[in-house]
């Protein structure tokens, strides 16, 4: 695989500062990818139709499986962008981590940027 020099990177903020996780052009609009973080945790990184970037925990709290990166993203009528788990379809707000289908559940969110 060749990567052009101009390719933008996607970075996540951790206590150690910004760390690059992947090249921008690996992201398909409306979909996510999984990234492995230095401490062994997993994050799901998404790009929406307007090219905004989001990152949340990859673990689906309802099943324990590390699959949220494989869910489809959507937006609610009031514009909240979410990912729907590919397993049992619960939806999670990508900015706040709140589960839209169960207010007691919330997943961790990461700060992401393209640089």
């Amino acid at each position: 695989m060749t990567i052009t020099a101009s390719a933008t990177r996607v970075e996540l903020l951790s206590p150690a500062g910004w760390s690059p996780v992947c090249d921008w052009d690996l992201l398909v609009p409306g979909r996510g990818v999984a990234v492995l973080l230095p401490d062994g945790r997993q994050a799901a990184v998404f790009r929406d139709g307007s090219d905004r970037i989001y990152a949340v925990d990859n673990r689906d709290p309802f099943t324990g499986a590390y699959v949220l990166s494989r869910g489809l993203i959507g937006s609610t009528a009031d514009g909240r962008v979410y990912v729907a788990s590919p397993l049992l379809k619960q939806r999670f707000d990508l900015l706040t981590g709140e589960c839209l289908d169960d207010e007691d559940v919330r997943i961790a969110v990461h700060t992401a940027r393209s640089a």
């Binding site: 139709g49 993203i73 959507g74 729907a84 939806r91």
Partner: peptide, 14 residues
């Protein structure tokens, strides 16, 4: 019928 800039959703996309 969604507002402009909508992502669609997990129902209509597939």
């Amino acid at each position: 019928r969604a507002p402009e800039g909508s992502e669609g959703c997990e129902v209509c996309k597939p």
